[in-house]
């Protein structure tokens, strides 16, 4: 168990430090790299408590896809090094601090409610109608719950994601004029007669093209 707790503290330390570094580091691309490190250490924590499916999905979805898109956007926008952060010596008047404080207060109270629920109402966990058996792999037990008891929520979240995806496409799609498109079908179905025209050329007269 010693090794287990040592690794637990190492991963948690990396997770917390990199989460702080996401907000602190001056280079936005570095922030995204720290975010990736954070995701990876959290998925390591998931694996350590035996939730290997969640840990791997976390790696695939967040690190393999979402963070790549973050990097894309940040690199493309080429955000210059952020100036006048509130922890640095230069002070920009602090207009964004009240909003940030409000958001973090709300999150803090939400966390207190959730953790307080665990702490002071221990039967909260038992009142759930899920039987978690330790014999089956957790991929299977997630599937057993997700596709039976919670199928409605699962489908609704799928629909929300689909709507969001279509919405993003509709918002960003622009029909631009003068874009040449290739149609394989048109190319292949061209007959010889359409492409080649045999002309009887007269001597010393030449051929008039574009008639």
């Amino acid at each position: 168990m010693i090794a287990h707790s040592v690794f637990f503290y190492i991963f948690s330390l990396i997770a917390i430090v990199s989460a702080v570094m996401v907000t602190v580091s001056k280079n936005t691309v570095h922030s995204v790299f720290f975010l990736i490190l954070d995701f990876i250490s959290i998925s390591c924590l998931f694996i350590m408590i035996g939730a290997e499916f969640l840990g791997m999905i976390m790696l695939i979805v967040y690190v393999g896809a979402v963070a790549v898109l973050f990097l894309f956007v940040v690199m493309m926008l080429n955000v210059a090094e952020q100036k006048g952060q509130w922890f640095s010596s230069r002070w920009d008047g602090g207009t964004h601090i009240p909003v940030g404080l409000l958001v973090s207060l709300i999150i803090f109270f939400e966390l207190i409610i959730v953790i307080g629920g665990w702490k002071y109402k221990p039967d909260l966990l038992n009142s759930l109608s899920i039987n978690i058996s330790t014999e089956v792999t957790n991929t299977r037990s997630i599937g057993n719950v997700l596709y039976t008891d919670y199928i409605l929520l699962f489908q609704i979240s799928g629909m929300i994601l689909l709507v969001a995806m279509i919405g993003a496409i509709v918002l960003t799609y622009r029909e631009r004029a003068g874009v040449k498109r290739q149609s394989y079908f048109k190319q292949i179905s061209r007959e010889r007669d359409e492409g080649v025209d045999l002309v009887e050329a007269k001597r010393n007269k030449g051929v008039k093209i574009d008639a």
Binding site: L59, V63, G64, A65, N138
Partner: peptide, 18 residues
């Protein structure tokens, strides 16, 4: 010999882009 071997392979190969 892990339970989620194929997911592990997929996850690591998706990290390759970094």
């Amino acid at each position: 010999d892990i339970n989620v071997g194929i997911l592990y392979l997929f996850a690591v190969s998706s990290l390759g882009v970094y």
